[in-house]
């Protein structure tokens, strides 16, 4: 199954992510976002971060989820490549994210992502599909 597809947007870039469950689609959106930021092939999983979020609705939950991951990239220079995501009732999310600290010598960075945006943000809980445009 295809994990995500990039969407072109003149100044920015976006993606649609798929999954068998909505949680998987959230994980694939995160994977897609880090694939925009870096080549992930060389990234090993020797670090992890646990994330817990509660939001007002599913779209905001997606926005906050992706932006929390960007926070870890800025502060700890972590490149994540695998995500165990649970979506719980009440627009809550828990996740364990695995990846590695950016290493100039081994990793190739591509495009900086400043933030997820609310523009055209979509969460489809029936098709288990999410869409997001990033500010890059």
């Amino acid at each position: 199954m295809k994990r995500y597809k990039l969407i072109e947007h003149t100044a920015d870039i976006g993606l649609i992510a798929y999954g068998n469950t909505l949680a998987e689609a959230f994980g694939n959106a995160a994977f897609g976002m880090f694939s925009i930021i870096a080549e992930l092939d060389n990234v090993v999983e020797n670090q992890n971060r646990c994330i817990e979020l509660k939001s007002s609705d599913q779209e905001s939950l997606l926005f906050e989820w992706l932006n929390r991951l960007l926070y870890y990239f800025d502060v700890d220079l972590l490149l994540f490549r695998s995500f165990k995501v649970n979506i719980l009732p009440g627009n809550r999310l828990t996740a364990i994210c695995y990846g590695e600290k950016y290493d100039r010598l081994r990793h190739k960075l591509k495009t900086g992502v400043k933030s997820a945006t609310y523009h055209k943000l979509k969460v489809d809980g029936i098709k288990n599909e999410v869409q997001v445009i990033f500010d890059v």
């Binding site: 905001s60 926005f63 906050e64 932006n67 960007l70 926070y71 800025d74 502060v75 400043k114 933030s115 609310y118 500010d135």
Partner: peptide
């Protein structure tokens, strides 16, 4: 990142 985070925080 400081500006990005402030924008995120306040959109919420």
């Amino acid at each position: 990142g400081l500006g990005h985070q402030i924008a995120d925080d306040y959109i919420k």
